[in-house]
Amino acid sequence: MIGKYIRERLSWILLVLFLQGLLLFVAYLDNTIPFLPMVYIAFLSLLIFTGFLLVRYTKETKFYKTLDSWEDTYDLSSIAPPESPFETIALDRLTLQTERFKKESSQHLVELEREKDDLLSWIHEVKTPLTTLQLIIDRMDDEALKSQLMYEWLRIHLLLDQQLHQKRIPFMKNDVYIERTTLEAVIHKEIKALRSWCLQKGIGFDVSLAAEEVLTDEKWLGFILRQLLTNAVKYSSASSDIVIESEEEEGRVRLRIRDHGRGIDPKDMPRIFDKGFTSTTMHKDTAATGMGLYLAKKSAEALSIRIEVESRQGEGATFSLVFPKSNEFVSLSQL
């Protein structure tokens, strides 16, 4: 701060030095003026000026030091009271801007809440005709057409489900209930939901659960598995199996989902959980939204579930869910 203060007052400092130098120069040229006393006067003047600068530095930088350390918030109480007209002008303008931003921020939050509520309401309204459509499809006799329609119905259902949970994630802590959850029931429910798609591709499931229970929220775990299984089915080769297995390692349950699809390009691996990222190898795949793994990661983090990925390009990918230990239940229940 002292360097900035010197640069701020540099013109005044140079003016004082120039005046003292001018005084000595005149005394040097004019023999009637004793030179040594003028040197003494100039020295005392500079000494007094230096002390004056130190006093003014402490006084004038107090306001700006607090302003410099002020965090980018709406709280102006940490800023020192102004002690000069210019400081008063600066604080007044800052206060006016802060009040305006607070007002605009409140308005934006209200608008976002309204849009979120409208979207959630629309999603729930769309689910009604979607359920009716499913019942109509179930009554069809043409199995080939029925399978195609169910596949398209499932795509719409999954997209709506993603959108619904995306809006809920920021408020997920209000919708979490940690309890002992049976993995088999949750996994079979999600597999059943993807049945029509799996039948169309000839994909089967090999489920082997050595560890049967975990402490987590059943509904949100189902959503995470839905995203991982959807990806596994989507990118698996036709007539292949998706392997689902669980085991307990050092008090933690690990659930693996392994497919035999195209795998993940090594250069894509650091970005697969980024919002909107699809793939660099299949960049023209317009069906991909890049939201599934992102939403799964965000949901898993809220439940203290770690997601690990192993993949070799052309040989498939393995996604692992590592659940927290039982003694970490307290931290989860405080969500």
Rank of each mutant, 00 (worst) to 15 (best):
L164Q: 14
H165L: 06
Q166I: 11
Q166V: 07
Q166C: 06
K167I: 15
K167F: 15
K167R: 12
K167D: 13
R168I: 07
I169F: 10
P170F: 00
F171G: 12
M172T: 11
K173A: 09
D175E: 14
D175M: 05
D175T: 05
V176F: 12
V176N: 11
I178P: 01
I178M: 06
I178D: 02
E179I: 00
R180W: 06
R180H: 04
T181D: 07
T181H: 05
T182V: 03
T182L: 05
E184L: 09
E184P: 00
E184K: 10
V186L: 07
V186R: 00
I187K: 01
I187E: 01
I187C: 04
I187D: 01
H188K: 09
H188A: 04
H188R: 11
K189Y: 10
E190F: 01
I191Q: 09
I191D: 08
K192N: 11
K192W: 09
K192L: 07
A193P: 05
A193F: 03
L194F: 08
R195N: 13
S196T: 08
W197A: 07
W197S: 03
W197G: 02
C198S: 15
C198T: 13
C198P: 02
K201F: 11
K201A: 15
G202C: 09
G204F: 09
G204M: 09
F205H: 10
F205R: 06
D206K: 15
D206C: 06
D206N: 14
V207E: 05
S208V: 08
L209D: 03
L209M: 08
A210D: 13
A210E: 15
A210S: 14
A211Y: 05
E212G: 08
E212M: 10
E213T: 12
E213W: 04
V214E: 00
V214I: 14
L215C: 05
T216K: 04
D217Y: 00
E218F: 00
